[in-house]
Design a protein around this nucleic acid. Structure first.
Lengths: 201, 201
DNA sequence: GTCTATATGAAGATAGAC
DNA sequence: GTCTATCTTCATATAGAC
């Protein structure tokens, strides 16, 4: 899950040599992603991140104004993607389940660590983040779309299970595959989710 | 999810009338269960719990020596039950999947809120609690037992999805049913999980 | 059993030197 | 861009009166 980044030393006109701010920023986000996933958002301190960065809190605050901002930066991209999936799923009357579930798999595969931390359900993160964005509602929309119009409770449950299945399955597959998701695995996860969703689709 | 408890006023020989310690203790655990589930372990303070209790932190510390102890008390029972399921699943060479998954459903239905908080994967809680107990290993054992001997990666993934399916499905069903799990729903969840698990069982 | 008051420490955040 | 030093807030936990 850790990404090796080659850090170039940049020469400025005035002769100051240093790592670029954007490189450091990216590194901070990598560390935060991992720690939030392991310890949760509330369970991770700025000091934790700074230590792993090999720097001090002061340095970190040069790059981010607050802990919230780190979270925002981390979550922004996958949040937008999830929002798009929810929107599409809701718009069309009966979107093929296969399509929606596949989109969820690909979303998570594209943003493994941050998606994991966000979507895996860290309560402290959800609580903090829901003040501005809205994950649960988007998930609910996707579940509702999968369940179809006027669903029985049983159908709703199965839809929710299917969504969770792609989440857990993709996460597990990424772990087994050291960060890479094979086409075979993707198909397998999709099949399992559809198996859970059951009849009609 | 909140349980209405009738609080008896106890008359002691010396004339002191008060709520019994065990009643208050139980109430504290109820509140902690709920808050931990919503905000996470790290995201919930002793003050939060005391406020909801309508008492002060000092009073709370009379009943529990530390925040850790509240967690321990909360988790002890479902943890023991999960441990038993894992043990049984591992012992018998090829335990019927239906049996194992049903046991998981019933476990969660019997301990909804605390099981939810424990098992739903609050990272801060996991981190804190894994120092003494071991949930992930037990889950892994159950997954391995479901997958069978020398499983392909795909089979492992499906087994993990099946376990997650009963977790999520039961939780969703309990929410829909206001805390009660009907036999129909139980069967539906089991079917969905088996559908995700796929061939052979 | 519950209260008030307080000790102690950790965490988020800022100021200003280098 | 990074450091040290410091401020502030909030959390866990304790002490002792009632």
């Amino acid at each position: 899950m850790t990404i090796d980044i080659h850090i170039p030393v940049v020469k400025y006109a005035d002769g100051v040599s240093t790592r670029t701010a954007s490189e450091t920023r990216a590194k901070i986000l990598d560390i935060a992603r991992e720690l939030f996933a392991i310890q949760g958002y509330a369970g991770t301190s700025i000091a934790d991140i700074a230590t792993r960065l090999g720097a001090t809190k002061g340095a970190l605050y040069y790059h981010f104004k607050s802990k919230d901002q780190i979270l925002d930066a981390l979550v922004a991209e996958p949040a937008a993607a999830l929002s798009l999936i929810a929107e599409r799923a809701t718009k069309h009357p009966g979107p093929p389940a296969t399509e929606v579930l596949a989109a969820l798999i690909d979303l998570q595969a594209d943003h493994p660590a941050s998606y994991l931390a966000v979507y895996a359900g860290d309560p402290s993160l959800l609580k903090e983040y829901t003040r501005r964005h809205n994950f649960e509602e988007q998930t609910d929309q996707i579940v509702a779309a999968l369940a179809g119009p006027q669903p029985e409770p049983a159908r709703l449950i199965r839809a929710r299970i299917a969504v969770t299945a792609v989440k857990e399955g993709t996460m597990a597959a990424l772990v087994l595959g050291h960060g890479h998701l094979t086409a075979d695995m993707r198909a397998e996860i999709l099949a399992a989710a559809l198996g859970a969703l059951g009849g009609s689709a």
